[in-house]
């Protein structure tokens, strides 16, 4: 039997968390991956939580504004405001309208949900799981895979570790139970996968290595895929730019750094890795198409 490709393996997961530092092209990789999974036959929902909507521009669809927006065959997009996810949770648990309004207006609720670490993250994961369980608005399709464009935080692992933190602090009650359930979902590599996006430069590689270590330590798991994005083209053999060839010199220097950092990453990270080139496309869905093509070739080749 033919061994399944990395794409097949990723497509079996219900939740893909795409993480990475700001500026490394995380959203572009998300959009490309979402499109690829949809083309592979999975009903895919791209979920975005950054306060400023971004993904719709990479897919040429109108902004979601909180709704599930169909993008193409089997692909949809949703932007979530973490705050309103928590407010919805209150409305759902407190069925009496006047009480729910009172709680939502209460400064205690506002400051508690704003301040309690991990609550918003847990709420977002909870929403993703509910959608996967079939609780979708009318006329929307139930997704088979949710691809989460996780916000760029200093340390990406804090997002994934949030539900466990919440379930440790809040040991009883519905929130505590929900958090515990989500935490075990996130700790199960059969159901969720983590994709780390980085660039072959010193700081992004350093942070990727720290993230891998931190994931191992706090979640006892490793990423399923590391995407090295924005690589300068390989240098031709014996390439020696003339002293006045400024572009050639810069190319050679940047590519040398790329090669050095790819090597440094490979010393500590031996798991599945794909390399994506810097492409001469401005953005929008043309960029997503170009990246999808590159990504497809590689994740279908990795076994």
């Amino acid at each position: 039997m033919r061994a399944s490709s990395l794409l097949d393996q990723l497509a079996e997961r219900q939740l893909l968390i795409v993480t990475g530092k700001g500026g490394v092209g995380k959203s572009t990789v998300c959009a490309a991956l979402g499109r690829r999974l949809a083309r592979h036959g999975r009903r895919t929902l791209l979920m975005e939580v950054d306060p400023r909507e971004n993904l719709h521009r990479l897919l040429d669809v109108p902004p979601s504004g909180g709704e599930i927006v169909p993008v193409s065959n089997r692909l949809a997009l949703q932007h979530l405001d973490a705050r309103s996810v928590l407010d919805d949770l209150v409305r759902e648990k407190l069925k009496v309208r006047v009480l729910a309004d009172r709680v939502l207006a209460s400064p205690v609720h506002r400051h508690f949900t704003e301040g309690a670490p991990g609550l918003k993250e847990t709420g977002v994961f909870g929403r993703a799981l509910r959608l996967l369980d079939g609780h979708v608005p009318r006329r929307a399709e139930v997704p088979q895979v949710v691809v989460l464009d996780a916000p760029a935080t200093g340390h990406g692992v804090s997002w994934m570790a949030a539900p466990r933190l919440v379930s440790d602090v809040i040991s009883s009650g519905p929130i505590g139970h929900m958090a515990a359930e989500i935490a075990s979902f996130l700790e199960d590599p059969q159901r969720s996968a983590v994709v780390v996006v980085t660039q072959a430069e010193e700081m992004p590689v350093q942070e990727t290595l720290e993230l891998v270590e931190e994931m191992q330590r706090r979640l006892d798991r490793r990423p399923e895929l590391v995407v090295v994005n924005g690589l300068y083209p390989e240098l031709p053999a014996d390439f020696e730019p003339a002293p006045d060839d400024l572009l050639g010199l810069l190319w050679a220097q940047r590519r040398t750094i790329n090669a050095r950092e790819i090597g440094r990453l490979a010393e500590s990270w031996t798991g599945p890795t794909v390399h994506l080139p810097l492409v001469a496309v401005d953005g929008g869905s043309a960029l997503t198409t170009a990246m999808e093509r590159e990504l497809a070739v590689q994740i279908e080749a990795v076994r």
Partner: peptide, 18 residues
């Protein structure tokens, strides 16, 4: 009445300990 229910709600949601 409303205040009691709001507090009871927090109690139920996050537990007494917290």
């Amino acid at each position: 009445f409303v205040g009691r229910n709001v507090e009871a709600f927090f109690d139920r949601m996050v537990g007494l300990e917290l």
